[in-house]
Amino acid sequence: MNAWNRFWFATTGRHSIGFFRVLLCAWLCADYLDFLPGLDSLLGRGGTFLAPSAGLRAALRLIPGTDLRDVGEIGRALAWVLAPLALFGVGTRFSLLLLAVVNFALRAWHSSWVYVGHASILPSLALFILAFAPGVRAWSVDALLEAWRDRRRGRPLLEALAGPPAAVWPVHLLLACAAVLYASAGVAKLRWGGRDWITGRTLQWYLEGNAGQKRLGDSTQFFSARRDAPPEARFRDPWGLDKIANSTMSTPAGRAIATSLPLCAAASWGALLLELAFPLVFFLRRPAQYALLASAALFHAGIGALMGIDFGGWAVLYLVAVDWNALLTRPGAFLPGLHSARAGS
């Protein structure tokens, strides 16, 4: 119990979840410039092929008389309004909570039927976590107004904006979610990709892929087959179509790497080690922690360059570990340990 409390509920003034809110919402606003207009190709079409996820449909049944497409349009309009409100911190917690719900619903719509936009998963989760996080009102218009009301107390404005020390659990929870996702992706590569992943063959196969025109995550869809499937199961085609391949966009850099199997093997090993080692972020010393987080950010930059998949939102998440309060108020002393605590509760 003590270890649980120490890990999640140590208080620290050295993390600045409020400023992280600004960074995440700024990224979200930028992402929305592409994502929300792109929903045109989905929202106008409902129907059999693009019905949103079953969970979303079930939720909408609770509101009788609603048309699914109207709800989508309303959600999109709300997202345009809520993202800047959450960014600037106007009605901060309410804006964040509503934005998290609307964002999740729109992403679920975007991920309709057999497609999941993996790149948006962790940022969407982060919005939910932020909505409940202590200290999230720091660096907000709300905090500014409160500081104005409290000005007679004589607190410096920057200190009032940064807010009091808060429990560290939102930072740790975000990184723990990332750790679960990375570790499970690493295990999956060993379990399902196996030797093909280790030798670099799988990565090479993906990097060699012919690209389609990218629009709203669209590209040519490939499948894999199992030729040892029993003959009676292969009545649809002679090859035994088996699984849906992940979708990537082929890039010139990716195709260049794909010409060398050793390079693909090195990249495969690097990805695997990073994914499996990420949970160590909680146990490493400070420089190693930051090296690991920087490696993860570089990893996603590499995916963007080689496979054309934008995981920028994941890279933004690692900025949660930076002590922005200190950076803004005491430049030069901004690298905190993830466990740095004021009170060892």
């Binding site: 998963i121 679960v180 093909d196 894999s224 391949a245």
Partner: peptide, 15 residues
């Protein structure tokens, strides 16, 4: 297709 995680993430056996 669980919307809160992402496996198998490119763990595809290749012919």
């Amino acid at each position: 297709d669980w919307p809160l995680s992402c496996v198998p993430m490119f763990a595809t056996p290749v012919e």
